[in-house]
């Protein structure tokens, strides 16, 4: 179910588009798809680590987001990641927050 609109039946997220002519996606081959999932988990964890959260792949079909006390939630795609992360931390997670930007810049410079 799409958590944003409450509609059943799955929702194609733009970063996970079904492979079709003209559309850019890394969902084409099985290995590409798995590789991209690993990359995505790593990329998400770079940001989530700033909030003491972590993401992991679940069976190549969903993701599990967890905090350090073990609270965890399954999410289907990237569209659900940030609402779930905000619910878990209890506060807005803003990519325009100066402190967060500074952390991300520090990671880039390392």
């Amino acid at each position: 179910m799409c958590s944003l609109c409450g509609i059943l039946g799955g929702n194609e997220h733009w970063a996970d588009a079904v492979a079709r002519p003209g559309i850019y996606t890394r969902n084409t081959e099985r290995l590409d798809r798995r590789r991209e999932r690993v990359n995505r988990v790593n990329a998400a964890n770079r940001v989530l680590s700033c909030f003491a959260l972590s993401l992991s792949d679940w069976q190549g079909s969903s993701y599990v987001i967890a905090n350090r006390t073990g609270k965890s939630e399954m999410i289907e795609d990237l569209g659900h990641l940030w609402p779930a992360a905000e619910k878990m931390t209890g506060r807005p997670l803003d990519p325009l927050d100066l402190a967060l930007i500074a952390r991300m810049e520090a990671m880039c410079d390392d």
């Binding site: 790593n42 964890n45 770079r46 940001v47 680590s49 700033c50 909030f51 003491a52 990519p95 325009l96 100066l98 402190a99 967060l100 930007i101 952390r103 991300m104 810049e105 990671m107 880039c108 390392d110």
Partner: peptide, 30 residues
Amino acid sequence: LIKRSFEAFTLVKRAADGGPRREARDEEPM
């Protein structure tokens, strides 16, 4: 802010060594 955020989050590393970027240290979450 959007520009700075975009650059900090999405660009590949300047050194172009392709290595993974280090994650924030665990002991100092925000």
